[in-house]
């Protein structure tokens, strides 16, 4: 059970479309986002350890926020505000996102 589809998202009280910033379409994770794309974060896999979750949120990887994916190899790198975070691919796979089609209006 590695892929996102069968995992349950929206646990930890960080549910779907928290602020209406991005509406749910289909499960899509940060690991599936092509490099260079901006995405809106939606929620987290229920298997994410609490301590990783808390750090992700503190770094600004929180539902409703926008991030830009920079690369996936050897690790996933995303830009959040004006800083870059490197995260392991397996961790990126536990972060659900909505691909941006209207990224211009949000910051």
């Amino acid at each position: 059970m590695r892929r996102f589809g069968r995992r349950r998202f929206g646990q930890h009280g960080f549910g779907f479309g928290r602020r209406g910033a991005c509406r749910r379409r289909f499960a899509f994770t940060l690991a599936d986002t092509p490099a260079g794309q901006r995405v809106c974060l939606r929620g987290f896999s229920s298997s994410l350890p609490a301590e990783r979750l808390s750090h992700l949120l503190a770094y600004g990887l929180a539902p409703g926020r926008w991030v830009q994916v920079i690369q996936h190899e050897p690790v996933t790198v995303v830009q959040v505000e004006h800083s870059e975070l490197a995260l392991e691919n397996d961790l990126a796979r536990q972060i659900e996102v909505t691909p941006a089609d209207d990224s211009s209006q949000n910051a």
Partner: peptide, 9 residues
Amino acid sequence: RTMLLVELP
């Protein structure tokens, strides 16, 4: 083990 999460300054 813990999954990597590190800031790149």
